[in-house]
């Protein structure tokens, strides 16, 4: 019923506007083309003039109003660099934006056709055109140089002591893998994937046996972290908005991103004034039905907290393999551990 009423009202409104428009067209024909153009020209010029400040003030007002809703300050070191290039770009483009929009609407109003006013035959001015080619070019150079300065820093190879985590996207969740005690991510092969082995880890490779696949992504504050990003099926995108991290997850072609968390989750909660704040990992590349729900919780901790957490995590091998197999394999793992210890002592 309400639908019918709404549709009825819409149709009514449209036909009223249409009738008014038809009549006004008739009136203007009666008035004569010249007179009616004079009348409408003034009104339209004024409307454009009024639009300009409303629009520009609206831009500023809305930016201030929604400022609190933007991503909070960056939680990673390189994120601050990104934010600074963003701000530089905002200043440059903001300046151009206001100058050109004001000029556009002001000129439109100011130079509307009016009786006794003439147009100026002014087809070109090479000097002027040269300047407004050179000045934007200078601005662009500034933006490119600042941008690329940080781009190379952000994409530089990860430092040797970086923590390495592998993250694999699949429809529709993320799988994070930590290397375990040996510090090595074991070999994997997509043909070995099954419900009990979500990454297709190759159990023949000893290095896989202590790999940990937790349900949350844990990071260490102040520690450079290199994520190796993979996909099991279609393309995904590893997206950590608070850390200003995005990198495609491409099946068969691992990608990497190195970043350093700046605040623990606890610290961030204080900074944003929200005791319930949490970091989140999202997927930013369309990947199918539940693309919008490929979420993983992210926790940033101190090194001590992290060490305690990871100690509690069982290697994936133990959950993946039926109990006897684990028992069989355990001595081998033990041996390896001893070997590692021996090496440490040396």
């Amino acid at each position: 019923m309400t639908t019918i009423i709404i549709v009825g009202i819409i149709v009514l409104l449209i036909s009223i506007v249409f009738q008014v428009a038809k009549t006004s067209e008739m009136v203007s024909t009666l008035k004569g083309a010249a007179q009616s153009r004079k009348d409408s020209n003034n009104i339209l010029g004024i409307l454009l003039l009024v639009f300009m400040p409303v629009f520009l003030i609206g831009c500023i007002w809305s930016a201030m109003h929604f400022h609190k809703d933007f991503l909070p300050e960056s939680a990673s070191v390189h994120g601050d660099w990104i934010d600074s290039v963003f701000n530089t770009t905002l200043i440059v483009t903001g300046l151009v934006f206001f100058l050109t929009q004001i000029a556009l609407f002001w000129f439109a109003f100011r130079y509307r056709e009016q009786e006794g006013k003439k147009a100026l035959y002014y087809p070109e001015n090479n000097k002027l055109e040269m300047w407004w080619t050179i000045i934007p070019a200078i601005f662009m150079t500034v933006l490119v140089v600042t941008g690329l300065f940080y781009w190379y820093k952000i994409t530089a190879p990860a430092p040797k002591d970086a923590m390495v985590i592998e993250v694999t996207g699949k429809q529709f969740n993320w799988i994070a893998r930590y290397p375990g005690k040996d510090g090595k991510l074991g070999h994997k092969n997509f043909t070995l994937i099954n419900d009990n082995n979500v990454e297709g880890l190759d159990w023949n490779d000893e290095a896989t046996k202590d790999d940990i696949i937790p349900t949350e992504l844990h990071l260490v504050v102040g520690k450079p972290t290199k994520v190796i990003v993979n996909s099991r099926d279609v393309m995904h995108n590893f997206d950590l908005p608070h850390f200003r991290v995005k990198i495609d997850a491409v099946p068969g072609i691992p990608t990497t991103f190195c970043f350093t968390p700046k605040y623990t989750t606890e610290e961030m909660r204080v900074r944003v004034g929200n005791p319930k704040f949490n970091f989140e990992l999202a997927c930013a590349q369309i990947c199918g039905q539940s693309h919008y729900a490929m979420k993983m919780a992210v926790v940033v901790q101190t090194q001590a907290e992290f060490d305690a957490w990871i100690k509690d995590q069982k290697p994936y091998y133990e959950t993946a393999m039926p109990a006897p197999a684990v028992a069989e394999a355990a001595p081998a793992a033990e041996e390896k551990k001893n070997e590692a210890k021996k090496e440490e002592k040396k």
Binding site: R37, S40, N41, L44, G45, V96, T100, A103, L104, F107, A108, Y111, R112, E113, Q114, K117, K118, A119, L120, Y122, L128, E129, W132, T133, P136, A137, M140
Partner: peptide, 24 residues
């Protein structure tokens, strides 16, 4: 770089209406 010719076009359009006699 591609932004530069784009900017030139904008400036030229604005200069076109400057001191014109615009019929809306």
């Amino acid at each position: 770089i591609i932004a530069v010719p784009s900017a030139v076009k904008v400036f030229n359009w604005i200069a076109t209406i400057w001191r014109g006699s615009i019929r809306f």
